[in-house]
Structures are given as structure tokens and as C-alpha cells.
Amino acid sequence: MITAVEVEDLRFRHPGSTSRIEDVSFQVLRGEVACLLGPNGAGRPRCYGACSVSSNPTAGQCE
């Protein structure tokens, strides 16, 4: 199968704040539908942003 999105050890921390995203890894294959679930403040939009050009992760990579 062909990987459409691969996230490895993604971490995002606001300066002077607690970590919002810590060591997130997942893979979405082409043709799959996936979503991120979690409570308010869990960092879902930041995770999407780290995989686009809107923000840079503190560590890890998104391809």
C-alpha cells in the first residue's frame, strides 16, 4: 500500500507553556479516511497545522 501521510514522533510546545503534542506517530494509507479525536485543548488543529505550512513542529516530521 502507498502511504499518503506519515507522522513520526511529532512534538509541539508553545514557548513558556506545557507541551500540547508529544510523541504522536501515525500513518494514513492512500484511500483511507482518518480523523484525530480528543478533548478541547488536546492540540488537534496544531497537529494538522504542523503537517501543513501554518506552523513548525518542535520535533518530529510529517510527510
Rank of each mutant, 00 (worst) to 15 (best):
F12T: 03
D23Q: 13
A42L: 05
R20N: 06
R20G: 11
R11D: 10
S52C: 06
I2T: 15
R11W: 07
S55H: 00
S25F: 04
T58K: 07
N56V: 14
G16C: 00
R46A: 15
M1G: 09
P39R: 12
E8M: 00
C47H: 10
G43R: 07
C35S: 15
F26G: 13
E22P: 01
G43L: 05
S52W: 00
S19F: 00
L10D: 07
R20H: 04
R11F: 04
G60L: 10
S52E: 03
R30Q: 14
Y48P: 02
S19C: 05
Q27S: 12
V33P: 08
L37F: 08
L29S: 10
L29Q: 13
R30E: 14
C51R: 07
I21G: 04
G31E: 12
C47E: 13
G38D: 06
S54K: 04
R44F: 08
E63C: 08
P15E: 03
S54E: 11
C51P: 06
V53Y: 02
G31S: 06
S17N: 05
P57H: 01
E63T: 10
H14V: 11
N40Y: 00
T3K: 14
G31L: 08
S19L: 09
P15F: 00
A50H: 06
H14C: 11
N40G: 03
I2P: 15
F12I: 05
L10N: 05
C47R: 11
T18I: 01
G38C: 06
R44S: 14
T18C: 02
T58R: 11
T3G: 04
T58Y: 02
G60K: 07
V28G: 06
V24Y: 02
V24M: 13
T3C: 08
L37D: 06
P45G: 09
G49P: 13
E6N: 08
P57V: 11
R11I: 10
F26D: 11
I2A: 15
S54R: 04
E6Y: 01
I21Q: 04
E22H: 03
A4V: 10
L36V: 14
Q61T: 12
S25K: 01
G43C: 12
C62W: 05
P45K: 03
N40E: 02
V5A: 03
I2N: 15
F26M: 13
R46D: 14
E63R: 09
D9T: 12
E6G: 06
